[in-house]
Every structure is written in structure tokens, then in C-alpha cells.
């Protein structure tokens, strides 16, 4: 049974100009209860890897540079 990928618009958006993950910051990754954020190997910036969001907002609230925005997932917007 091969596995396909279904596209989804992810709710958490990171402003790469503001994100300082490439300087070693991992705050948003650390505080996410669902553990859905990661630091990209390509860009060195945080991004939402898994679309499993409770739109609870610790990532946005605790981000030291205001780079993270939590949107309401489209299915319930």
C-alpha cells in the first residue's frame, strides 16, 4: 500500500526574517504541546512539519522575536 501525501494549508506561520532559529533558538519547538514544529535543515528556520495543531498559541506567545503566528486551521475557520 503506497502512501500518498495530501496537501494542507498549515495554521502556524513563521516569519523567516524574524526567526532566529539559525542562531540556536528552539523556543517554539520546545513549548509546542503537540510537538509539530521543527527547524528546517535547508533554511535553519522554524516551520510547521506536522499539521496537528490545537491552535493553543504557546509558540506565538513565547517566541522571543514575534516571528510566529497561529492561524485557526482552515477546516474550522
Amino acid at each position: 500500500m503506497p502512501i500518498a501525501h495530501t496537501p494542507t494549508a498549515v495554521p502556524v506561520i513563521v516569519d523567516e526574517a524574524k526567526c532566529i532559529a539559525d542562531k540556536g533558538c528552539t523556543v517554539c519547538v520546545d513549548v509546542c504541546p503537540l510537538d509539530v514544529l521543527r527547524i528546517s535543515d535547508l533554511t535553519g528556520k522554524a516551520y510547521m512539519k506536522y499539521d496537528e495543531c490545537w491552535y493553543c498559541m504557546p509558540c506565538e506567545t513565547d517566541c522571543p522575536t514575534g516571528a510566529v503566528t497561529v492561524n485557526i486551521p482552515y477546516l474550522l475557520r
Binding site: 504541546p33 503537540l34 496537528e52 495543531c53 490545537w54 491552535y55 493553543c56 486551521p73 477546516l75 474550522l76
Partner: peptide, 13 residues
């Protein structure tokens, strides 16, 4: 009802 697995009342963890 949204069908979103994570859109639960409780923290989805």
C-alpha cells in the same frame, strides 16, 4: 464536527 483530528475540546495531547 470539523473533522479536524486536533480540533478537540481537550488539549489534543
Amino acid at each position: 464536527q470539523s473533522g479536524y483530528l486536533w480540533g478537540t475540546y481537550e488539549n489534543a495531547t
